[in-house]
């Protein structure tokens, strides 16, 4: 009798849950359907200007990618940019978090001000820096650098300058995110391990290496996870500043897919490129999420 009751209850819960989920599931289906359509297009030669030539081409779009010179460069830029963003931004973010965690005067003011870049639309951030990064001497950034004896930098005009510019803009917008995650983590750390380490005579460096960083690892992995995902698909900043140029120096896979589909209207190819990017994102996020679970478990014990 008890089992029958349990089963009835389970069935009722399931029914109720799905009723409650219906509106969201309908909207979700509205998103999954176009995605499925896009997946299908990636196996066709869909070219918006030539609808009559529409044909199923199996994996041709994906195979073509290997021979596409731009793809190799875009893949390199995507991975290189992501690696640099994660290493440098998480490193700097950790430094800022540790700095703010120490009793710095005006900490709350700095913390509140750091929220400003964080919630800016990335496009707007990009435009703000674009104004400051004018390559002539009228650009404020070059003007300020001239006091340090730096010659005017051709920010968006040269390949290296463009890469550095995009990186600086991305860092300005996202450093607060990492710093605030890690600061939150630091403030939640227990005090006992520190007291124990102090009794053992650990110095500041040893304390950081053997106490703080291991305890902070779930937050560090989380920061790495979000930064990696967002750097792999960065679009807005590049679009508003360089549009992938000059000479494709800042073209990542996302921008490349955009160019194929919305400048040349080769939707099939564009879709194949973005699916490739999606698989890359999926693999990396799977690995990082497992790391996160492990880090969260190990510190919970």
């Amino acid at each position: 009798m008890d089992i029958a009751r349990k089963r009835r209850r389970w069935r009722r819960d399931t029914l109720q849950s799905y009723l409650l989920l219906t509106p969201a599931l309908v909207l979700l289906a509205g998103m999954v359907y176009p995605f499925g359509l896009g997946l299908y297009y990636s196996f066709t030669n869909y070219w918006l200007q030539y609808p009559n030539r529409f044909r199923f081409v199996w994996f041709d779009n994906y195979v073509d990618l290997i021979e596409e010179p731009l793809f190799v460069r875009a893949l390199e830029f995507t991975l290189g940019f992501t690696l640099a963003a994660v290493v440098i931004q998480v490193g700097l973010g950790l430094a800022v978090a540790l700095f703010l965690h120490a009793r710095v005067p005006g900490r709350n003011v700095i913390r509140a001000l750091m929220l400003m870049p964080l919630m800016m639309p990335p496009v707007i951030t990009a435009l703000m820096w674009k104004i400051m990064m004018a390559s002539t001497t009228a650009g404020i950034l070059n003007h300020l650098l001239s006091f340090l004896g730096v010659d005017p930098v051709n920010w968006f005009g040269s390949t290296q300058g463009a890469i550095v510019s995009v990186f600086i803009i991305d860092t300005w917008g996202n450093l607060p995110f990492i710093a605030l995650i890690l600061l939150g983590g630091l403030q939640a750390l227990p005090t006992e391990p520190y007291e124990a380490a102090r009794v053992d005579g650990a110095g500041t460096a040893a304390m950081l290496r053997y106490v703080t960083l291991p305890l902070l690892s779930p937050f560090l992995v989380l920061a790495v996870l979000f930064r990696t995902m967002d750097s792999l698909r960065i679009f807005d900043v590049i679009y508003a500043t360089t549009l992938g140029g000059p000479n494709d120096a800042t073209t990542n896979l996302h921008i490349m897919a955009y160019q194929f589909s919305f400048q040349w209207f080769q939707m099939g190819k564009g879709m194949a490129q973005v699916i490739t990017l999606l698989m890359l994102v999926g693999i990396v996020s799977y690995v990082l999420m497992r790391l996160w679970n492990r880090a969260a478990e190990s510190t919970a014990q």
Partner: peptide
């Protein structure tokens, strides 16, 4: 509540946070 496919649904929802936009924009366009 607990119900079948709960975790799968949660995962699908979470994964939208990481999807490259163009994947949806091309077919939606």
């Amino acid at each position: 509540f607990s119900f079948p496919l709960k975790n799968a649904l949660g995962f699908v929802l979470m994964s939208f946070r990481f999807v490259p936009f163009i994947a949806f924009v091309i077919p939606l366009y």
